[in-house]
């Protein structure tokens, strides 16, 4: 019996140690490409950890956003940085791994980057600014917060009053049957609205920094194009399913949005373009749709004597569905646009 109880704990211990090891390797690897790949692996293992912790929603989001989108963004950025570096005709400081060029193959050489200061451009190497003694000192100093935080977590061992019961008591009135979705869209909907605004803000920031579209203008691989044509409609279907299922099971707008975004990226990579006449205000409208629908819905109810973002009884369900659909579209479009980089 005891061994049966110990087995899950042993698995969890291995998972936790894997997490720490991957994080350490990702942060200390001298090869940037390897670091990014290890970081993506970290995200995937983290996804497993979330499943172990009964947080399936987070697991989905972690794998789609934390590992998937972040990983894709990192790889794309790395490819652009390194192709710019190759252009300055310096000896590359990064060790060329077998797989490294894969990321380069994804991106065209960044023609816009200026010829640059070169002597210093390659100085990075394994890239620490600090002498080793200082680093050791810092590591020793960091043992204090490590021990302190560990001690505090140990203190938190005793179960504290959470909000589980309160959420369960009000779930009926929230318009959805899945507690996490209820918290996200109804109980703490104000946070989620602003979070959508943060995502949009990131795109505004990215577009304010660069003007040229960067990615996906290279020659296409026929196999990739074929797969994209096969997968894109499927992914749209999966996104729709995730929105729908979010009402009563793990899933929802953010997970669905990232699937939609991935579909957009695939289509882009296989040569599809947003038609030029749609890149102006129609595209911008899609990008802001989620925030607009959410915000307007929240304000309109005030005219009916409800509080801000407080849906009248019986109206919560359709309202939340409309918000989720609009948010999914916008999240998908924003994520794809973030990956592509330059504004149209």
């Amino acid at each position: 019996m005891a061994s049966l109880n110990l087995l899950p704990l042993a698995i969890d211990l291995v998972l936790a140690l894997t997490l720490l090891w991957l994080a350490w390797r990702a942060l200390s690897s001298p090869d940037l490409f390897r670091a990014v790949v290890l970081f993506i692996a970290l995200g995937l293992v983290l996804g497993l950890v979330w499943v172990r912790l009964d947080a399936v929603d987070i697991a989905l989001a972690e794998i789609a956003l934390g590992a998937g989108v972040t990983g894709a963004l990192l790889l794309a950025a790395l490819a652009k940085l390194q192709s710019a570096e190759a252009e300055t005709a310096d000896a590359s400081t990064e060790q060329e791994g077998d797989w490294q060029g894969c990321s380069q193959a994804l991106a065209e050489p960044d023609a816009k980057s200026k010829p640059t200061l070169t002597a210093s451009a390659t100085m990075d190497a394994t890239g620490s600014a600090m002498p080793i003694a200082l680093r050791i000192l810092l590591a020793l100093l960091l043992l204090v917060p490590l021990a302190g935080l560990g001690w505090v977590v140990w203190q938190l061992w005793l179960p504290a009053p959470g909000l589980t019961d309160l959420v369960a008591a009000r779930l009926e009135a929230s318009g959805v049957a899945h507690p996490v979705t209820a918290v996200l869209l109804n109980f703490r909907g104000y946070d989620t609205l602003l979070e959508l605004a943060v995502l949009l803000l990131a795109l505004l920031g990215v577009w304010s920094l660069s003007s040229a579209p960067h990615l996906g203008d290279e020659e296409q691989e026929p196999a990739l194009a074929a797969l994209s044509r096969l997968l894109a409609p499927l992914m749209i279907l999966v996104a729709a399913y995730l929105v729908w299922v979010g009402a009563h099971a793990p899933g929802g707008a953010f997970q669905a949005g990232s699937v939609l975004g991935a579909a957009g990226v695939l289509l882009r990579l296989s040569g599809w373009r947003v038609p030029p006449r749609a890149t102006g205000w129609p595209l911008r409208l899609v990008l802001v749709l989620g925030v607009v629908v959410f915000a307007c819905m929240g304000l309109v109810v005030m005219a009916f004597g409800q509080p801000l973002l407080g849906y009248p009884p019986g109206w919560a369900k359709p309202a939340l569905l409309a918000i989720e659909l609009a948010a999914t579209l916008s999240i998908g479009a924003i994520l794809a646009a973030l990956f592509i980089g330059g504004r149209p």
Binding site: V167, F187, R188, G189, Y190, Y311
Partner: peptide, 13 residues
């Protein structure tokens, strides 16, 4: 002091 949505703290914001 107003609640956002129909939910006062600690459940709501």
């Amino acid at each position: 002091r107003v609640a956002v949505g129909a939910w006062a703290a600690p459940l709501g914001i």
